[in-house]
Write a protein that binds this DNA or RNA. Structure first.
Lengths: 344, 344
DNA sequence: CTAAACTATTAACGCGTGTTAATAACGCGC
DNA sequence: GCGCGTTATTAACACGCGTTAATAGTTTAG
């Protein structure tokens, strides 16, 4: 048993035809006619040789990598604690396997942001890309916009021209805060999901403020804290909030993952949820419903978002014009046990 | 402004040298000498043209894809609820970026298992692969073993000849159960992480039984239930356990993710943790410490495992013989609040 | 002063496939 | 028997790069 690679030439030889014919048969080339018996000969020859086309050569010749990239700008550490990643990958996978593509995970270091996207595009490793958690201050994205590589944003970037799939962060945040207001809370703190440089973060704060204003309450900057994706940052910001001496009876946390840390800090301070402090999260990560108390939160369909983003990308890859440029996925509040009526 | 791709030929022309020289300079080819001024000319030419080598062509010519694959056998749905995936990807990323490789996520459908691995290997999309959650009954793996593609298993497969990185599942489970025994529990149920076909599952059960036997307690099959990765399966199995009428004062759950569902079922049945039932988990996923009560669990260093597995793979790719064939990563029990002394 | 040994560079081939333009075989009406 | 449209097939080029073997130029050893 020789270890020699089986090429389409071998298949051609065995079938007694040319390599071109083999290619036509295996790719179902349209506009060319091949007799049924020839087709059969080729197919069985390929089968008996266990022929698998060389993806690299195919990519070079066809000028399509047959792969898309999921591009993130976060450090490996933050990637490791991203509660949404599995859902997003799962969602992408579903679409990708139908289109016989592959998924590449790319990680762009902040320092190389200005060049990395372009190189990614130029290197032709991927046919298109899906960008996660874009930052407002990402210089590389501006340049990427000029280049002609199919790109879909998960999230939104003010003033950018990318195709995107996102939730209405303002509205969603407003829904969450609205719920707290309806329960009678008026002193409501806010802890964000991420630093303000990530687009979703200020949007959710705006939603928070809008809800307050609509209820005739003046937002208070002292009640707003910026976390950094992980539970630990939530823990820290909650400490800061508690030590600031500001009064509040509820917290809107713009990320369930961060809320985990918030809960820990509250518990440590002897505050019970929801008896002393009501908590509303954001994201509805899989564990939110199993937390104790189960977390009231704004449900975000991450898997569905990924699926949609991927579908838009598929359209772009096939040269079709996607129907909508900026797609909004619906969110809704899930009321569980971490929030309750304010005692008066 | 034409959108023509910049090739190494363009760089060569601008620098006034041959394409070969360009290749030598850019790849730091050893065994060939190039004068400093020529080198400089090439570098600045490449720079000014914004030259980015075509990865596809490089791969074809060099016969290395410069990418490795993370291969999973689970459905997109299960991928979406995998709490470890981010940690594993994060760990892999860390090693990969140092070696200028890329990460491909591959998903092998169960129905195609027998052929998929081989095609993956033959298609040369990737230079090597890391296999996740191998199944005992996976026919494709047997065939893969014959082929000469660098492969590292995360997990263990009895009787296989793969390089692997794993925890000592038996010992780790024993540690967890031991803890419950020391607290005075004698009636301890067990809910696994996965169906028995996944290698880790029966191993953890064995560890559970061993601990009991060592304490002079006869394991009772009625107290063992097999979950299926997600919280929901934990919920279902716990229901089944409760309805079976068997008495128990503690549960060893071989997966924190599953344990989330177990907690929900217990709470629904009016049982408090740890007052009525002590709970010990397995994995120490990032949210375990933020659960309420914080979960006592066996800590498994997923990120580190991924890192190690990737390092072994790097060795294999470079033709080095890795030091150890089957690497074991240490685990340790983390005692939190979900377990406590049995009232007598 | 010639042979040998190095230095600097390149022409040319190979990687395995997709695809165009050309060829060969074949039936058809006249 | 002759042109002509199909049908079936292939030779040949393109894709962009890595790499070997060979060619000039230049220094060193004998």
């Amino acid at each position: 048993m020789t270890k020699k690679r089986v090429t389409s030439q071998d298949v051609a030889n065995l079938a007694g035809v040319s390599r071109t014919t083999v290619s036509f048969v295996l790719n179902d080339a349209k506009g060319f006619s091949i007799s049924p018996e020839t087709r059969q000969k080729v197919v069985s020859a390929a089968e008996s040789l266990n022929y698998v086309p060389d993806a690299t050569a195919q990519a070079l010749a066809s000028r399509r990598a047959k792969a898309i990239g999921l591009v993130m700008t976060r450090s490996p550490h933050h990637i490791a604690t991203d509660a949404f990643l599995p859902q997003i990958i799962g969602g992408l996978m579903e679409v990708i396997k139908d289109n016989k593509l592959r998924l590449l995970i790319e990680y762009v270091e902040v320092e190389h942001q200005d060049r990395a996207y372009l190189e990614l595009a130029r290197a032709k490793h991927i046919d298109g890309m899906i960008l996660l958690t874009p930052r407002l201050d990402d210089a590389g994205l501006k340049k990427l916009e000029q280049v002609d590589i199919p790109t879909v944003l998960m999230g939104h970037l003010e003033g950018s021209n990318f195709y995107s799939v996102d939730v209405d962060n303002k509205l969603a945040a407003q829904q969450g805060v609205q719920h707290l207001l309806e329960l009678g809370h008026t002193q409501i703190a806010c802890i964000t999901n991420a630093p303000p440089s990530y687009a979703a973060s200020p949007d959710r704060v705006t939603g928070y403020k809008n809800a307050l204003i609509a209820a005739g309450i003046t937002p208070h900057e002292d009640l707003i804290r910026y976390a950094d994706f992980d539970p630990e940052s939530g823990y820290i910001q909650t400490k800061s909030l508690l030590e600031s001496g500001n009064n509040f009876t509820a917290i809107f946390v713009a990320s369930d993952n961060v809320a985990m840390g918030v809960k820990a800090a509250l518990r440590e301070a002897g505050l019970r949820i929801p008896e002393d402090i009501s908590l509303v999260g954001f994201d509805d990560i899989p564990w939110a419903q199993y937390a104790d108390p189960p977390l009231t939160t704004v449900h975000l369909q991450a898997e569905e978002m990924a699926r949609r983003a991927c579908l838009v990308l598929m359209d772009l890859l096939q040269g079709k014009e996607p129907k909508v440029k900026q797609q909004i996925i619906e969110t809704h509040l899930v009321v569980r046990k971490s929030s309750r009526k304010l005692w008066l």
